[in-house]
Design a protein around this nucleic acid. Structure first.
Lengths: 272, 272
DNA sequence: CAAATAGTGTCTCTAAGACAATATCAC
DNA sequence: GTGATATTGTCTTAGAGACACTATTTG
């Protein structure tokens, strides 16, 4: 028998197969209340969720995402689903792992590939809830409690989602959680979100990865604010500049009209 | 309709689904020819491959791995397949990503989850080729050529596998390749192997990740040799010791019988 | 000119790299 | 004792963090 003959008679669909989805953890930046017309606004990390219109988990909040279709790669699926469900056309998609626990979806055997995307202000405004689904940005807050427990709080106006997670282990640079209490998030999405926050934080300490998430041109202060918001720290501008300098190069463009000294726009420097 | 009613009538198997596999890139360390009875042996990075007994890709070399079964997680599948096909019971398995290009498997729509495992000398010796499959350790050599091309050479005795890959992009800390020339490796395994080498190299620069791959007790020189072999560099022992010191703690055990001064065994220090 | 951010200079401290020197075992 | 690795110490240099200071725009 030749390989061609083998393939002609082989039917892969005779065997057990799971359904496969892509789910996207979309992070953005929300402005806090403004202080003065000339002061830059402080930002907090926010997360995009969709209110499920149908079963299962009807009326619960979930990550945008959906089933992978024949012929497309999981990244393409993530791209398509995000566009369909929220109108956002992502410029970046980082694969953060596969969730394959057998009972994670009540509909049956479903394996999910998780992605993280970072979107900017403009895309944020463009979030369109279509007739079927309601999409909202939630403010993300994390707090560590006793005994390896973490409280994840998502807030959007009057809507408050609280989830308690338990630290399981840290391995190969990934932090793993189990859900302890969760009433408003669908599937295992609370776990995916929690783990995504840790992965994102770990990754954006590396400037090269941070740049992969961002537009081509940026100010050094803008860059600093994004890293600060994600990491939840405050850095000194002078030191930050010195540290990024080897990775960026100047352009001859400047910002303007901000009520204070304009900033030079920089772009990423191709190292090596 | 309630959620229970919905689930009773819902049949997920009516929709298109892929088959899903786990494939494992198993790295080990091969001793180079010995110089003197008292000199430590130099090691080179090696890779475990299996000669396929049936179609497709009959008689080609492939990564150990196989189809995910209902009820198991992809990590469990990797564990099971590795044990079944090579006799190795892995102590570590790092998820390195999902390969979902539609035409990557001639049998049909197959998505693969790739893992990296590092095994020590003892497991190396235990590799048992069963009657159906031949398992062999290949010496791994990488060389960079012009125009972003890389030559991957796998050698085991007289068997030589040569593959040419083209650098596509580096994004989110991952280096992506396409296969340019490949005649002896099955599926897209040449690509998975090439990308796995880069991921492993990047990851083991971090001591915490390196420890996740290793047994509980080790000598500092042993640790250094492993990092050196993977990264393909030579480090000064004095500096290496100072650098790892914050991550390890002494035990009161020593090595012996090596023909030279014994080394203290260390273990990982739980930081925070 | 006042308020805000943009950007520079300098000091200190720590960590990384190079290299020299000493310690200890098995044969 | 010899030949190998194990381990310690010291010098130099590069980089991170703290902080003071200057520059520039818009209302």
């Amino acid at each position: 028998m030749t390989e061609a003959e083998f393939l002609k008679t082989y039917d892969i669909t005779k065997y057990d197969r799971p359904s496969v989805t892509s789910d996207i953890v979309v992070f953005g930046f929300q402005n806090e209340e403004e202080q003065s017309y000339r002061q830059d606004q402080k930002k907090t990390l926010s997360l995009l969720l969709i209110k499920r219109g149908g079963y299962p988990f009807k009326d619960k909040w979930a990550l945008p995402g959906g089933f992978v279709q024949k012929g497309e790669k999981i990244e393409q699926c993530a791209f398509r689903e995000l566009k369909e469900e929220t109108g956002i056309v992502p410029t970046n998609l980082m694969d953060i792992g596969t969730y394959s626990a057998y009972k994670r979806d009540p509909r049956g055997w479903v394996i999910s590939n998780a992605f993280v995307s970072l979107v900017d202000e403009d895309s944020v405004k463009a979030v369109a809830s279509d007739d079927a689904k309601e999409a909202l940005w939630f403010n993300v807050e994390y707090s560590k409690k006793k005994n390896g427990e973490y409280l994840l709080e998502l807030t959007s106006g009057k809507i408050k989602i609280k989830t308690t997670l338990v630290f399981v282990k840290e391995k190969f640079g990934r932090t793993e959680f189990h859900i302890k209490e969760n009433s408003d998030l669908a599937f295992d999405h609370a776990q995916i979100i929690a783990e995504a926050v840790f992965i994102l934080r770990k990754q954006v300490e590396d400037f090269e990865v941070l740049f992969d998430f961002l537009p081509e041109r940026f100010t050094l202060t803008g860059l600093q604010k994004i890293q600060e918001t994600i990491l939840g720290v405050n850095l000194l501008a002078a030191n930050f500049r010195r540290k990024v300098m080897p990775f960026v190069e100047e352009t001859d463009e400047y910002t303007s009209g901000a009520g204070h000294r304009p900033a030079k726009l920089f772009k990423r420097k191709k190292v090596k």
